[in-house]
């Protein structure tokens, strides 16, 4: 009995003298929608982690302590994100001035304050260094280019942007937080994104004035195939959020899907609306592919943003609420003010 008491005492002592190690408190991810971007508060700034969708094991991560004053970007979408935060003055280089929309940046390029790199594929290291570039944001396309690796080796912070691989429009817009962190405007970016989310949700709940869900087709003929956003892409999500019955909603994938031209022609009799055909007029469509005239939906309503392509590519990622608003108006047939889209008149 005495030994039993001794054993009990030992157990109690052991429990008291060796307390359970406390788990470190997990820092909160400030991104709610994005599947690829993680921003967590760190000691003197943020810890930014970016997942490569092609190689999920590969994660780019860096500790951001100081905002960057001179940023180069390699995509019009990145320009739009900076414009949304009114941080255009931090830009020191852009990919190609022909694809710019923002008048402020156009002016800066004309004045020589912002360098035109001409091509995102053939980066000029000399130009980037001459502009005292501190950070470079580039669109990630799987394995990194040699030029990016070379720039990293000389100390430039090169940040991949996979916003275009997100599957939800709000997740795409959430990348504005990355630009908020990079420019020291994180709170402003949060405010901005909160407003976009509120608008998006409000528009999504607007009543559908159509009796049924209209069948919508998107995309165009490219080479010998019909190319369109796949069922799990952010564009398909936008269509679903305004109650469109999307023609390709059974074609799995987060990027583009392909279909034979003849299959589209044969099975598209119910389509009442054609979105994003890639040309600003019906005449231009016929010039590009004369056989469009045989598609039943060529005679129906067609909407596209190609009358101002640069504006769409620059601003649509940061403004999914505007895109949704356009689609909602198109669905209801009471078009008042479209941000990006325009109807191709017969």
């Amino acid at each position: 009995m005495r030994s039993l008491w001794l054993l009990l005492l030992l157990v109690v002592w052991a429990c008291e003298s060796d307390p359970q190690p406390q788990r470190p408190k997990q820092a909160k991810n400030l991104c709610k929608y994005s599947e690829l971007l993680t921003i967590t508060p760190a000691k003197n700034g943020f810890l930014i982690q970016i997942k490569n969708p092609e190689q999920p094991k590969e994660k780019f991560s860096f500790q951001l302590e100081q905002p960057f004053m001179r940023i180069a970007v390699l995509s019009a979408t990145h320009v739009g994100m900076l414009s949304a935060l009114e941080q255009q003055h931090r830009l020191c280089a852009i990919p190609d001035k022909r694809y710019l929309h923002d008048p402020l940046i156009k002016k800066a390029v004309a004045q020589g304050k912002v360098a035109d790199l001409k091509s995102a594929q053939q980066l000029s290291i000399k130009k980037l260094l001459a502009r005292h570039t501190q950070a470079l944001v580039f669109s990630g396309f799987g394995p990194e280019q040699t030029q990016i690796k070379r720039l990293r080796s000389i100390g430039l912070t090169c940040i991949p942007n996979y916003e275009w691989r997100e599957t939800h429009p709000l997740a795409r817009a959430e990348w504005v937080l990355l630009f908020g962190a990079l420019t020291g405007q994180f709170e402003k970016a949060q405010q901005y994104f909160k407003q976009v989310c509120q608008n998006y949700k409000r528009i999504r709940t607007l009543p559908n004035l159509c009796n049924s869900n209209p069948i919508v087709i998107s995309g165009y003929v490219y080479g010998d195939q019909w190319v369109a956003p796949a069922a799990n892409s952010f564009e398909a999500r936008l269509y679903a959020d305004v109650d469109f019955a999307y023609y390709f909603n059974k074609r799995a994938g987060t990027g583009s899907c392909f279909s034979s031209i003849q299959s589209v022609l044969a099975k598209s009799t119910g389509v009442v609306l054609w979105l994003n055909p890639g040309q600003p007029t019906r005449a231009a469509l016929l010039q590009q592919y004369p056989k469009y005239k045989y598609f039943p939906f060529f005679k129906k309503r067609i909407f596209c943003y190609t009358h101002n392509t640069n504006f769409y590519w620059e601003c649509a990622a940061a403004h999914p609420d505007w895109v949704l608003s356009d689609l909602s108006q198109i669905r209801n047939g009471n078009v008042k003010k479209l941000h990006f889209y325009k109807e191709l008149r017969p």
Binding site: Q262, S263, L265, A266, K267, T269, Y294, P296
Partner: peptide, 15 residues
């Protein structure tokens, strides 16, 4: 290979 399963006669003709 001509897909005529869900098409009208006119459309099959076009195809």
């Amino acid at each position: 290979f001509t897909e005529v399963s869900s098409t009208s006669a006119a459309q099959a003709n076009v195809l």
